[in-house]
């Protein structure tokens, strides 16, 4: 009997040891940053040369009573992002022009954020059954945790492409996604913009 007990304890011990060794995953928040790019294989980037870029980045659209309001990213964040996009395009041989100067391409950045909430609650209970009128007592406990992911999208489209829905299909899109922190540090997004151009060599026209 004692020997069997040792065997059982041994088996449990080994199992716990193995479970404790189960591999972990990401350790830092920027480990989760990803950059996705896609381009239209039919599109001839070499035949184009100019682009237009807005001065602000839209992060939300609010529609109230039929009125549409654009919500923009704060300049302190938006300006370095826009400057980075412009620098990269110019380094690849593109020339920036105004939107009213018939640009070959229109580049539109947009920011999207999405928050996922985890919500759980449980009841603690206490029974004071000795006294009449007392009973199960349920003070509820709630826990809420959340994370927010942010995505910066950059779309590059030829505004002259004719389509039945008056919209141009993007010739190039880039999406950079990561978990947002409250640090106000945009180094991660600037690094992601660098990466998006690095993995898109077809944008080089010079």
């Amino acid at each position: 009997m004692k020997r069997n007990l040792y065997r059982i304890l041994g088996a449990i011990g080994v199992a716990l040891l193995v479970m404790g060794c189960y591999p972990s995953g990401p350790e830092y928040i920027d480990d989760l940053d990803v950059v996705y790019t896609k381009f239209d294989e039919q599109f001839d980037f070499q035949s184009k040369g100019t682009f237009a870029l807005p001065d602000a980045i839209v992060v939300d659209v609010k529609i109230k009573n039929g009125d549409t309001t654009w919500v923009y990213m704060k300049d302190v964040y938006a300006l370095p992002i826009l400057a980075s996009i412009e620098d990269h395009l110019q380094a690849q041989g593109w020339e920036r022009v105004g939107i009213d100067q018939n640009p070959d391409m229109v580049v539109t950045p947009a920011g999207i954020s999405s928050t996922t909430y985890f919500y759980s609650y449980w009841y603690d209970w206490w029974y004071g059954g000795w006294y009449p009128g007392w009973g199960w007592y349920y003070p509820p406990y709630y826990t809420v945790s959340s994370y927010t992911t942010g995505t910066l999208m950059i779309a590059m489209a030829d505004p002259t492409v004719d389509s039945p829905i008056n919209r141009s299909q993007a010739a190039w899109i880039a999406a950079m996604s990561g978990v947002l922190t409250s640090s106000g540090n945009i180094d991660r997004i600037l690094k992601a913009i660098d990466q998006s151009f690095q993995q898109s060599p077809y944008l080089k026209i010079n």
Binding site: P23, L32, D33, Q199, S200
Partner: peptide, 28 residues
């Protein structure tokens, strides 16, 4: 038996046709 293989892949770019995705990968 139970065996688990694990590898943390460094930052890399994975390209399929006309799409590329860069980031770190954890493989189990």
């Amino acid at each position: 038996a139970w065996n688990v293989f694990y590898q943390e892949k460094g930052y890399d770019t994975y390209t399929v046709d006309n799409a590329s995705l860069s980031g770190k990968q954890w493989r189990y």
